[in-house]
């Protein structure tokens, strides 16, 4: 497996079309906020870019679905021209992974209220009343929908503030469902299971308490904080996309390299070491 190519699903709400593109030059941005920043930068630099497209970029990293605590989805967008990097809990990251996608870009504005249903790389748009709960495949789906003024994932997981909800409302997007049915072969190396079990056993290093609350996919903690989402923070952890409370584990470049290496991702030590500056500089450019 190589994670250097990035597969991105672009969804245009204005004309209700979509396309999937494979980018072979986004690999060094790894995933999550790094990949999101590269996508946003590319869109904004392109000749077709218009202010009204207002892209929202949901992106995951190479470890989502493979390792514990890599359980979040990065959401990058502009709100009143301010760059926002939010991180959403729940099960969205694994559904994107098992759709064989690295990111979903939602752009444009629908003239009428719209929802859509993603099954792997296929998108079906729905206008008029549709029960989102009836879409997707049970046990393999994830749903973002409006509850009052807020958009929640699975009626529970939110972002840190209302900016994403306001943007989704402006787009006339009522919500969406994604179902992932792809499976990947278990990495052949025995080291994979050793690493997985080692990381799972380090639960005491997660800097948040268990509370029996709904948990994110792949995280055994079940903390109260999971419902609140995250903003900003460690660039490497948020490119994987790991939980901020697992920073002791995913902030360690040697562990990150081991995880990526066992998946045959093709990254070098230098890629990982140079990565934070690469993404920091790109985010600073986007903030100008």
């Amino acid at each position: 497996m190589t994670t250097l190519n990035k597969k991105i699903l672009y969804i245009n709400l204005a004309n209700q079309t979509y396309e999937t593109k494979l980018h072979d030059n986004y690999g060094k941005y790894i995933g999550g906020v790094g990949l999101g920043a590269k996508i946003l930068n590319t869109i904004e630099k392109s000749e077709e870019a218009s202010v009204s497209s207002e892209p929202i970029i949901f992106s995951i990293g190479p470890l989502n679905g493979y390792f514990p605590y890599a359980s979040k989805t990065s959401v990058l967008f502009r709100h009143h021209n301010e760059l926002k990097d939010h991180y959403l809990g729940g099960n969205l990251s694994t559904r994107i992974k098992f759709s064989s996608l690295d990111a979903i870009v939602i752009y444009g504005r629908s003239k009428e209220p719209v929802t859509f249903d993603i099954l792997d790389e296929t998108v079906i748009f729905h206008t008029g009343g549709v029960d989102l709960g009836s879409l997707g495949l049970p046990g393999k789906r994830s749903q973002i929908s409006k509850k009052g003024e807020k958009y929640l994932l699975g009626d529970y997981f939110a972002t840190v503030d209302d900016s994403l909800s306001q943007l989704l409302t402006n787009k006339n997007l009522q919500g969406f469902v994604i179902t992932g049915t792809h499976t990947y072969d278990l990495p052949k190396s025995e080291r994979y299971l050793e690493l997985y079990n080692m990381m799972l056993s380090r639960i005491e290093e997660i800097s948040v308490r268990k509370s029996g609350s709904p948990s994110c996919s792949g995280c055994p903690v079940g903390c109260f904080e999971s419902s609140k989402g995250e903003e900003g923070g460690n660039l490497l952890a948020h490119s994987l996309v790991a939980c901020t409370f697992a920073q002791k584990i995913y902030g360690d470049t040697s562990i990150v390299f081991s995880c990526l290496d066992v998946l045959g991702s093709g990254y070098t030590h230098e890629d990982i070491e140079n990565f934070p500056k690469l993404v920091y500089d790109l985010l600073e450019e986007l903030k100008k």
């Binding site: 099960n91 098992f98 046990g139 072969d185 997985y196 609350s213 948990s215 994110c216 792949g218």
Partner: peptide
């Protein structure tokens, strides 16, 4: 008691030699 973490699903799938949700 379930908190929806799906670790059981991933464990089952690992035992079946795969990563994913399909066929679990």
């Amino acid at each position: 008691n379930c908190i929806g973490c799906e670790l059981c699903v991933f464990e089952v799938q690992r035992q079946l030699g795969k990563i994913g949700l399909e066929g679990s």
